[in-house]
């Protein structure tokens, strides 16, 4: 199981890199969907069953499909525009990566252990995280209204 998870996280990183590097927009959206699915598998490996299913349902099923539809609607060739500031970006990100990676090498904590079952997460969302949960519902409602307002046609 451990080696399977190592392979999956390697594939997640490779496909995330391909999201950035791929010239074809549809290819990079598909790589993105694949890495979402891999992250869902990582969630399942630490016992977070509910989050794994939600990750696949929302990220691959909703976000990924919306990305694909928008690529179809907006880009005629399906190709993306060139990148800008490649090398300075690598330097900046490499520096930041060194700063994050250096202290985290020494972390040897165990992960997992708690079972993220549906009942437990539901109880948590309606007790400790009740106020964020309600705020999220308002945010989602305003996002729906805002998106339909932004995308409406003037000439109707």
């Amino acid at each position: 199981m451990q080696s399977l998870m190592l392979i999956i996280s390697f594939l997640v990183l490779i496909s995330a890199l391909m999201v950035i590097l791929s010239e074809d927009m549809v290819h990079s959206a598909l790589f993105l969907i694949f890495s979402f699915g891999g992250v869902g598998a990582l969630f399942l490996s630490v016992g977070a069953q509910f989050l794994g299913a939600i990750q696949i349902l929302i990220y691959t099923g909703a976000v990924g499909v919306m990305m694909l539809l928008m690529i179809y609607f907006t880009s005629k060739e399906g190709k993306s525009i060139k990148r800008e500031g490649k090398y300075s970006g690598i330097v900046l990100v490499g520096l930041l990566g060194f700063l994050i990676l250096y202290p985290s090498i020494s972390i040897t904590r165990e992960v997992g252990g708690t079972k993220g079952l549906t009942q437990n997460i539901g109880r948590l969302l309606f007790s400790d995280l009740l106020i964020p949960f309600e705020v999220i519902s308002i945010v989602l409602l305003s996002a729906i209204i805002g998106a339909t307002y932004i995308i409406r046609r003037e000439d109707h």
Binding site: L30, Q49, F50, A53, L57, A62, Y72, T118
Partner: peptide, 25 residues
Amino acid sequence: NVNVGILFLIAMFSISPIAVFMAGW
């Protein structure tokens, strides 16, 4: 007999539009 049961089923159903888009594209 997974804990998320039918949610997993809905999640797997939700991937098939991606496959259909891949075929169409």
